[in-house]
Simulated assay, not measured.
Amino acid sequence: MKTGNILLFVSFIIVLTFSSFVIKQEDKSSGKFIVVLDAGHGGKDPGKPSKYGYKEKDIALKIVLLVGKQLEKNPNIKVVYTRKKDVFIELKDRPRIANKAKADLFVSVHCNAHHTQAYGTETFVLGVANTQRNFEVAKAENEVIFLEDDYEKKYEGFNPNTPEIGIGLALIQEEYTDQSILLASLIEKNFANKIKRKSRGVKQASLWVMHQTVMPSVLIETGFVTNKKEGSYLNSKKGQQEISESIVNAILEYKKSLDNNIGDSLEAEDDILLPTEERIVNDVIFKVQIAASSKVLEPRSYNFKGLTDISRIQVGSIYKYYYGNTSDYNKTKVMEQEAKKKGYTSSFIVAFKDGKKVALAEALKSTAN
């Protein structure tokens, strides 16, 4: 692929990704933590070949359905499937389903293959194919493209056999890399510690199925169907149950780490009560400060106990998080009570004028309607 075509492809995908991100931010979710589960392959695409008769598409689907069944027991989690039966889903449609669902996580489940008796688990996040083995995995997972009609038009010149394309794909998911790696690490940790599987680690590769997802995304290689012993384990009810439980545990740990990532050490300003007619200020924006943390979190509802309309401002090494955005002080007071009911007991109202934080008393002295 010529360099010019690669740059054109990368620019095209970045534009699509940015557009999807804007849509997601404007269309607020219900507050539930949304997980999209993707069973690899399906229908006319059987997945990795195995001389022992194990079918990757069937194993991946059974594991995904078990993961979904367990996650659905949690009232704060919504599960979306790219497929729930043996059907062929085009590769480009899998991330599209996740973006449309405004998902918080995208988890794709697969089985591995090799010409030797290699075994063990691997979890991939999007990145440059920095080793020959990672490149081989990327090629194998991306080659489903060639089973689709008019794939040249659909994928805008993307060639899954070209390692240079990984550079462009890595840029797209850069914003979510840390979160993706965190989830991938938790998955591999659960595999190794809970069910004593051999973990081959967290790796990065240019995998199309994750290239356009605008959320943390991982692709799990649950083991090798080309290994007689491991393939038998993957094909068994016991193996599928253990693997699914490990994935569920990792997702719940990941979600918990986000829930616990917010500090509650705030310095409140004095509350001010004024007559209703004096509480609407044209050139001032009121917000409710709910948290301060040294860690960067996406201003998404799942990070803030279901609250939407979250904004973030960096002050030195601290990130401050705010709920709401209005010139109506009365509305802000209601939001403050909502935040406190959610558990942010130290939350308080702050004011911004011309984009700069000002004392609340000064803001309320401004000319009112």
Rank of each mutant, 00 (worst) to 15 (best):
F33C: 00
P95M: 03
L252G: 10
L71M: 13
D86R: 11
G53D: 01
Q117F: 13
E298P: 06
Y155M: 08
H211Y: 13
N227M: 09
A39G: 06
R279K: 14
L71Y: 07
D264H: 13
N193R: 14
I243P: 00
V67K: 00
K100T: 12
Y323N: 10
V35N: 07
L16A: 11
K255P: 07
K78G: 03
E156K: 15
P75Q: 06
K84N: 10
F352N: 06
F9Q: 15
F135I: 02
N74P: 04
A192V: 07
K237L: 14
I97W: 04
H114I: 03
Q240Y: 12
V36E: 04
S327P: 12
K356H: 09
S20I: 09
E143D: 06
V137G: 00
A291Y: 04
A103Y: 07
K229P: 04
N227K: 06
S246L: 09
S244N: 10
D271N: 11
K55A: 03
G157A: 13
P46L: 07
A291T: 11
A361R: 11
K189T: 13
R279W: 01
D93I: 01
H211N: 12
L364W: 03
G43D: 12
K73V: 09
I349K: 02
V80W: 01
K255N: 04
L360R: 01
L8M: 13
K256V: 04
P49F: 05
G223H: 05
I167A: 11
G306F: 05
K357I: 10
G166H: 06
I220R: 00
F12K: 14
L273Q: 11
G53S: 04
I145N: 08
L171K: 14
T332E: 06
I290S: 02
S29G: 15
G40M: 09
D45P: 08
V87H: 04
I181F: 05
K295T: 14
Q204C: 02
G4Y: 12
A140I: 02
G127H: 03
Y319R: 11
L266Q: 01
P75T: 02
G316E: 10
R197P: 04
F158S: 01
N5W: 12
H211A: 14
R200F: 02
V350F: 07
K341N: 07
F191V: 09
E90L: 07
L307C: 06
L364M: 08
H110G: 08
Y302L: 03
S347E: 06
G68H: 03
E298L: 12
A101T: 06
A113F: 01
A268Y: 08
I172S: 02
N5M: 13
T121N: 04
P49L: 01
G42E: 00
V125R: 03
L7Q: 14
E188P: 10
S236H: 08
K295E: 15
G47D: 05
V214W: 10
I6E: 12
N369F: 15
K356M: 04
F21M: 12
K356D: 04
Q70I: 14
R94Q: 05
V288T: 08
R279H: 03
I165C: 09
Y344Q: 08
F21C: 01
K229T: 14
S185A: 11
Y322I: 00
E26H: 11
